[in-house]
Design a protein around this nucleic acid. Structure first.
Length: 246
DNA sequence: AACGCAAACAACCGCACCAGG
DNA sequence: ACCTGGTGCGGTTGTTTGCGT
């Protein structure tokens, strides 16, 4: 990682702008990146003519300005993927986002917190957790008693609650087995993906891969009730196209 | 039309990690 | 080995928007 001369703190008292980005700021950032590329977020803001922190610039770029970002309208298929990935990965939004082209971690995180989390609460459903997945035995059968007790206990742990009502028996040895060294559930992402592909509902991911390879096969938008937001009076697509000079 | 509330979204903050010096 | 600065991530908060009364 390249390093730069220390910032003179005494000269660092310029007012830093916060809050919503304006179209002009977006234009400046995109124009700068188009010309010079991303070389250092912290030091890019000033020459780009932005009174923003590097972090703010990076966030704006990553979540809205970079090409190929999809906005709104999370399809049913994507929702299923999010649920399944969250079951395996937990709150690792960036990892989940990596699996959903065009989606940002922020968007997925918001979607989860606002819609899915609430739905699980309202429907009194079992909140999926990363530890729900166990691939090395019959326990990956959701209908099995073992699977069920694991899921219940982990959800209860996640909410700092005791075992939920209706669960009168918890197999502690199973829980210990899940968290003990040498357990087949590893933290490393590669192993997590192996677990993921062992899931019975893998077909959803396969369908999604198919969608990526054959974009024309994506479900028709007519199924969606989402209305496209506007960006400074334009559709998001027009706004980005305009920013990129296309 | 005005107000209040809830939902949705955008952005900030703090922390952890990584790499160069 | 340690320090420092940059980056990325997840949690949280602030603002905007939509809807019901």
């Amino acid at each position: 990682m390249a390093r730069f001369p220390r910032v003179d703190k005494s000269d660092n008292k310029k007012t830093v702008k916060k809050g919503a980005w304006t179209a002009e700021e977006d234009h400046k950032l995109v124009a700068y990146i188009k010309r010079y590329g991303i070389w250092n977020w912290t030091h890019m803001a000033e020459p780009a003519g932005l009174a923003r922190t590097g972090k703010s610039c990076r966030l704006r770029w990553m979540n809205y300005l970079r090409p190929n970002i999809k906005h709104g309208n999370i399809a049913k298929e994507e929702e299923e993927i999010i649920i399944n990935l969250h079951r395996v990965l937990g709150n690792r939004w960036a990892s989940i986002a990596n699996r959903l082209p065009g989606r940002t971690d922020n968007e997925i995180k918001n979607y989860w917190n606002i819609r899915l989390k609430k739905r699980f609460v309202m429907d009194n459903l079992q909140m999926p957790t990363a530890c729900d997945v166990k691939v090395d035995s019959n326990d990956n059968d959701p209908s099995s008693p073992q699977y069920s007790s694991i899921a219940h206990v982990d959800a209860a742990k996640a909410q700092n609650l005791g075992p939920p009502r209706g669960v009168d028996h918890v197999d502690e040895t199973l829980i210990n087995g899940l968290i003990s060294p040498g357990n087949k559930i590893e933290k490393e992402e590669e192993n997590i993906w192996e677990q993921l592909f062992a899931l019975k509902d893998l077909c959803i991911l396969e369908d999604f891969d198919g969608m990526c390879l054959n974009p024309g096969s994506v479900s028709p938008a007519s199924e969606c009730t989402y209305s496209e937001p506007t960006y400074f009076g334009e559709s998001y697509e027009d706004f980005i196209m305009d920013l990129w000079g296309n």
